[in-house]
Nucleic acid binder design. Structure first.
Lengths: 200, 200
DNA sequence: TGGCTCATGTAAGCCGTTACATGATTTT
DNA sequence: AAAATCATGTAACGGCTTACATGAGCCA
């Protein structure tokens, strides 16, 4: 039997393995812990849970009488094998980024130095907020969840690096604004003016 | 007139501003320079170019007789204003990541230490390749393209940080495999065995 | 009783990739 | 003459988000 799931399918399988056993619980965990490197919305989670059950990787049981309406999922042996296979068998890992701040910065030559500095400051603020979110929202270290903690540290460290990088660039550009300086990194470019730039 | 483009629309506008004046040239630049933080495929570029022309932000001219078939685009004044507006007016910047390696790592408690180490090594190799790609593929520093160079440095530095982080984690986990050590980060967990993990 | 959280879902639609199609020109 | 590159496009499809719909139980 061929179980070729999307990474989000594996995310859900893994979440169930870790103890998030309802769609709602998965949603919460994703928001707290993985949204910074892998997001998932209700529109994905609930249909995917059903698909995984149909594929024989999960089993479901409704809440007992008197309890709040709720569907609890468990891994089947096939599900556990599939999860383990994904975790251990190497394959091209999807790695995608969409960083609009960096995209703007890429065109920074079209801006004045002041405008470029403002842009970088905005990028920094964004990463500071993201970092604060990771710091607060991820659950505290749990004896059986070392890797949740490790991944949290990754997020904190990565964004700290970016914040530091932004700060350095801000300072570097600010220096060029000082009266004594010669070279400017970016030519003052106004919407009406022409940009002459060699191709390549 | 309301010009609310997708970031990819602005990417194309910016690429034309920078001197990539055909769909083909934009494609190449994206591959070399921005794909690491903003990708774009033919299926997006060509239709978007036409949309931008219809919106009055670009004008097109066919290649002169005898030259290779080719459509050259230029920014209109409206296009230049729109681009400048996007670059300077602050707004919520889209920032998305999909990092399957990190996602696997998040579930690392289900693995043996050896398996976890193998996974991290794979992540590191991936980032080493991406970093090498950035180093090679991005064009050399051009007098009028400082920010292309700055963004390249960002990519190199960021991936270098990740590579270092992976290496450290590998060493840390390897220490736990040594005969004298007590604690193990991850419990040896096999596909057949049960994972007992408290919710939350 | 009213509002909040818990909890599960669906529908529309965008964004983007993959894969293919086409053909001209340049290089080997 | 063949192969590679230049160059522009389209069609199908998948993944994901947004927004909405629904309703039960809990708490003030």
């Amino acid at each position: 039997m061929e179980h070729d799931l999307s990474p989000t399918g594996y995310l859900i399988l893994g979440m169930v393995a870790i103890g998030a056993c309802s769609g709602y619980a998965i949603r919460n965990r994703v928001e707290r812990a993985t949204r910074f490197f892998w997001a998932a919305s209700n529109g994905q989670i609930y249909p995917e849970l059903k698909r995984l059950e149909t594929a024989g990787l999960l089993t479901s049981s409704p809440a007992r009488d008197g309890e709040r309406r709720r569907i609890e999922y468990e891994l089947t042996d096939a599900g556990r094998t599939t999860l383990h296979g994904w975790l251990t068998h190497s394959s091209r890992l999807t790695f995608e980024q969409r960083n609009e701040g960096l995209l703007k910065l890429f065109f920074g030559d079209v801006l004045t130095t002041e405008e470029a500095i403002a842009l970088i400051r905005e990028m920094r603020h964004h990463h500071e907020m993201v970092r604060a979110g990771i710091e607060l929202a991820t659950p505290p270290n749990h004896p059986d969840r070392h890797f949740g903690y490790i991944v949290k540290e990754y997020g904190l460290g990565l964004h700290a690096w970016v914040i530091g990088w932004c700060r350095q660039l801000e300072e570097r550009l600010a220096k060029e604004l000082e009266p004594g300086s010669e070279a400017t990194v970016s030519t003052a470019e106004r919407p009406g003016a022409r940009t002459r730039l060699d191709p390549q």
